[in-house]
């Protein structure tokens, strides 16, 4: 059975049908891409999967559970992590603190009385796990800078690290390469590959940079005006004439 299974998702904004009867699935450990022109409904779909928006129709089943109506933080606890198109970092915190707070959130042992007995500090185990992830992402040397001081590329890696600390079974990445230069985005692909190797996390990647998509995923969905127009193994989808017309604007 698929890890994530969304069936018949529709969402309207006023008179605009942002998503219509959309279905997709992601298997455990899989890397799936979701592409489409601007305004195709990719981010809307993400927000529906994550609970930021409530779809008008359709069901989202994750790991055998129906997520309908569940608030964001509970979905996160079941194992959905995400990064944002417009970075959402915790200002005034360092990269390391981002990871530490995510680690603490995963353990969910933040009772108030522990704070009051001064047992709230990070344990050696927590520090160790954070260090390991910083190392995996290759941002150990900038981990103690406040996030305002980080480059876009490092900022995206901190977001990724924060999501990874919750040990997600599925990672939703919303245009992780936007705003990155070519070297940074190559480095990001490398990190994603390493993450998949070491942690067997499934990935659903929304991305404009087709090179990055082709490097990172094995299966592809193409969305246009809220409708899926193609899906299948990456190479096969890329050869599809309709996709080329809709997405690449190429005469065939």
């Amino acid at each position: 059975m698929a890890l994530l299974e969304a069936t018949g998702i529709s969402k309207r904004f006023g008179g605009i049908e942002a998503l219509s009867e959309l279905s997709l699935f992601v298997d455990a450990g899989d890397a799936v891409g979701l592409v489409g022109p601007n305004g195709a409904g990719k981010t809307t779909l993400f927000n529906c999967l994550l609970g930021l928006l409530r779809p008008d129709t359709g069901r989202v089943i994750f790991d055998g559970r129906d997520l309908g109506g569940m608030p964001i933080h509970r979905r996160a606890r079941f194992g959905i992590g995400r990064t944002f198109q417009r970075m959402e970092l915790f200002t005034e915190m360092t990269g390391r603190e981002h990871l530490l707070v995510a680690e603490r959130a995963r353990r969910r042992d933040g009772a108030l009385w522990k704070d009051l007995l001064n047992r709230g500090g990070p344990s050696a185990d927590e520090i160790g796990r954070v260090d390991a992830t910083l190392d995996l992402l290759g941002i150990t040397d900038v981990a103690d800078l406040p996030v305002e001081a980080l480059s876009m590329g490092h900022g995206r890696l901190v977001e990724l690290g924060r999501a990874l600390m919750t040990e997600p079974k599925l990672l939703l990445l919303d245009e992780p390469s936007s705003g990155l230069d070519r070297t940074e985005s190559l480095a990001l692909s490398g990190v994603l590959a390493r993450v998949q190797d070491e942690r067997t996390t499934a990935i659903l990647l929304v991305e404009h940079d087709l090179d990055m998509v082709l490097r990172s995923v094995s299966r592809l969905y193409v969305l246009d005006f809220g409708v899926l127009i193609a899906d299948g193994p990456t190479a096969q989808v890329m050869a599809d004439a309709g996709v080329r017309r809709a997405y690449l604007g190429q005469a065939v």
Partner: peptide, 26 residues
């Protein structure tokens, strides 16, 4: 103590971005 502890960390995260804090399970 609350500021240094978990609750304080959670609140600092929420101050930064409520949506992002929720996506890590806070």
């Amino acid at each position: 103590l609350v500021r240094k502890g978990t609750t304080g960390q959670y609140l600092a995260a929420l101050r930064g971005s409520e949506t992002a804090a929720a996506t890590i399970g806070i």
